[in-house]
Design a binder for these strands. Structure first.
Length: 492
RNA sequence: GUCCCCUUCGUCUAGAGGCCUAGGACAACUCCCUUUCACGGAGUAGACACGAGUUCGAAUCUCGUAGGGGACGCCA
């Protein structure tokens, strides 16, 4: 097996369903790994004890699996047992590691215990803001000897561990970003930041560095909102003597109002798209296009296509607005490309959930799907489409009122209803239907919409829809007659 | 407020100084196909944020302005 030193990771914090933004980050990392025969690692950033839960971890995993973004290393689903040589893969299980590196920093005089309270910090913030300075903390504990701090802690006082940003040497940290090129951060952009919380839990910028280094991560594709965090992380890489991975900061996904995409923009989690009948291959395809383009401009792509075509040079640095209409189009393209049996397998759960009773036989299903699929954009659309072919009582839509008001309509429907009987078998064939339609045309002296609209209303309760010669052979005669009777009854 | 990032049709994007009277896709509109609806096909309309500069030449390079976004947490 060809080994590659490419190792990337997706590191969600388990605080809910997987967001489309997170999914896109995961996807880009996944594509990059697969493109280069590298490893895709799942690491759980569950250091926020308030908001994280194992339930959420599993939810995120299910969404990733649904999208087909399987990881080579990380906790397994559903056991959450680690798989891989660089575990544990949940940050809450790596506390001793963070402590070790924090101690190292403290002993080197690069970090210190800080006893500032929230209130004191808030006062400092306000004062700094008022004075037009960046709201950075200024800790009086910065130069306390370790022993003195330890004594105070022994007495029961709570302390965080802060990194001591060197203020004696102002300099620019230069990041060569895979997406943005050279980015320079002035070192005084940040104040002394927290490494370890008073409870011993690490804070993002710290554990992220320790983990990426220890897990030998080579490339990090993450969202742009981490760009300014990178300065802190670069300081830590330097101080800890770790080799920095290559960073690529991808742009954010925005809602129609150009604000960061969130719940208030409507569906923003993968789970919602799954439930609403979107295909994982379509969601992947669509979100990939939000910030990346294929070299030839190809838009409809399978996962394999994207793996083959992906390269970070084609990542776009400007934020992208999420357009649900285009997603729906992409979805319908993937839907139509699916083999009939596969499509049925995807559609079936939705039909079941809707409680539709439909013929069991395979050939009927395949024919029905073939007829209905051009009208479907999502799997959920199959429910309404197939409802018309089920034995559910006919709903006569308002649109049918005009058709029903024509003087000739009643006689046409009556002739239709009576004519059905004159053919042998449980179903009318396409030829049978056309023959009957012709007969009605001659006998009732109607043509055009005055002929077929009444029949369509008698068949599906609406004057518009799929071609009758395709639809009628999919409905057994009993249903056809019952429906015609229902419409006749309404006509009185 | 400070710092960082971003700026091509309504939206996603192509574009690495001349190939650009700026190309494609979604959406919109028109027409064709169709005894309806969809599908499909053919078209139409629609953008380089603004201002300077560099250059023989700028959507592309530089600077400034404006606008948008992000960060400044014991969130990630």
């Amino acid at each position: 097996m060809a080994t590659s030193s490419i190792r990337v990771r997706f590191a969600p914090s388990p605080t809910g369903y997987l967001h489309v933004g997170g999914a896109r980050t995961a996807l880009y990392n996944y594509l990059f790994a697969k493109r280069h025969g590298g490893q895709f690692i799942l690491r759980i950033e569950d250091t926020d004890e308030e908001r994280s839960s194992e339930e959420f971890i599993r939810m995120q995993m299910e969404d990733l699996k649904w999208l087909g973004l399987d990881w080579d290393e990380g906790p397994e689903f559903p056991s959450l047992e680690d798989r891989g040589d660089y575990g544990p893969y949940r940050q809450s299980r790596r506390l001793d590691l963070y402590k070790k590196y924090a101690d190292q920093l403290i002993d080197a005089g690069r970090a210190y215990f800080c006893f500032l309270t929230d209130e004191e910090i808030e006062v400092q913030r306000q004062a700094a803001l008022k004075a037009g300075r960046p709201p950075q903390v200024n800790s009086p504990y910065r130069d306390w000897p370790k022993e003195k701090a330890l004594e105070r802690i022994a007495k029961g006082d709570k302390a965080v561990v802060r990194f001591k940003v060197k203020d004696e040497e102002k300099r620019d940290y230069v990041l060569n970003d895979l997406v943005r090129g050279e980015v320079r951060f002035p070192s005084d952009m940040v104040g002394d930041f927290v490494l370890l919380r008073s409870g011993g839990m690490p804070v993002y910028n710290f554990c992220c560095v320790v983990d990426d280094a220890l897990m030998k991560i080579s490339h990090v594709f993450r969202a742009e909102d981490h760009l300014s965090n990178t300065l802190r992380q670069m300081m830590l890489y330097d101080e800890l003597g770790f080799k920095q991975p290559q960073f690529g900061h991808i742009s954010l996904i925005l809602g129609a109002d150009r604000q960061k995409l969130s719940k208030r923009h409507g569906a923003s989690s993968c789970h919602e798209y799954k439930v609403n009948g979107y295909l994982p291959e379509a969601l992947n395809n669509f979100i990939a296009l939000l910030g990346w383009s294929s070299p030839e401009g190809q838009e409809i792509m399978s996962m394999d296509d994207m793996i083959r075509l992906f390269s970070p040079e084609r990542l776009h640095s400007a934020p992208a607005v999420f357009d649900p209409q285009k997603l729906t189009w992409v979805n319908s393209m993937h839907l139509r490309a699916l083999a009939p049996k596969e499509l049925w397998a995807r559609v079936e759960p939705f039909l079941k959930e809707a409680g539709l009773k439909l013929p069991q036989d395979e050939s009927w299903r395949m024919r029905a799907l073939e007829v209905l699929k051009t009208g479907m954009s999502t799997l959920k659309d199959a429910v309404d489409a197939f409802r018309l072919l089920s034995d559910e009582p006919l709903e006569i839509s308002e649109e049918a009122n005009e058709t029903l008001s024509w003087p000739s309509t009643k006689a046409v429907i009556q002739a239709w209803r009576d004519g059905i009987q004159s053919f042998a078998g449980d179903y009318l064939s396409e030829e049978d239907f056309l023959k009957l339609q012709d007969r009605i045309k001659d006998e009732q002296k109607v043509k055009g919409k005055h002929l077929f609209m009444p029949i369509r209303v008698a068949v599906i309760g609406k004057p518009h829809g799929t071609e009758l010669k395709m639809l009628v052979p999919l409905l057994n005669k009993k249903i056809l007659i019952d429906r015609a009777d229902a419409v006749l009854k309404k006509l009185g």
